[in-house]
Amino acid sequence: MSRTNNTVDRSLRSAFRDRLAAVDVDSTVVSRDALADTLETRLTEPAVASDLGDGVDLPAAIGTEPTLADLRAAATGITRARLGVASLGSIVVSSSPGLDGPVSLFPPKHVAILEAADIVADLETALELLAADFAAGANDVVFVTGPSSTGDMGELVVGVHGPAEMEVVIVE
């Protein structure tokens, strides 16, 4: 998939991080070289990951082809994020063809890796890019905005069928 922006718009990144904070999602900005070390400090083991592509050296203990049992046992799930939406603090997880969907959903903590160049201004822009992805064969994305939550048990509770905790690691 192509890079979204050629240059990193710092005001967009800062707006995105503000919105992430507003929906209770932590974020950090790291250089590409520091990414693997940063991930190690952010995860609670046991951890699972989806295929993160080249250039990300995970500790050997973290499998990238987890079984259902691995998913259920995991404390942290690590995935890529396709996009960040600055106006909403959303990340877009592309769920297919790999296991990004379940890895981002089952464990109680989700750590998402986002290229700074993939932060877009708003939902409109995001959907235009995703429509192009779909035309090129993608077929499964989810806008994730903050932790899983419910108000159905009498008051707001965080962490229902999905994670209670989220962190976005922005790579530049």
């Binding site: 769920s95 995703l130 994730v144 905005t145």
Partner: peptide, 15 residues
């Protein structure tokens, strides 16, 4: 502003 999960997918998905 938006819900926690807004999914867009064309099933059957490949996961």
């Amino acid at each position: 502003s938006i819900t926690s999960y807004t999914s867009v997918f064309s099933p059957p998905v490949n996961t």
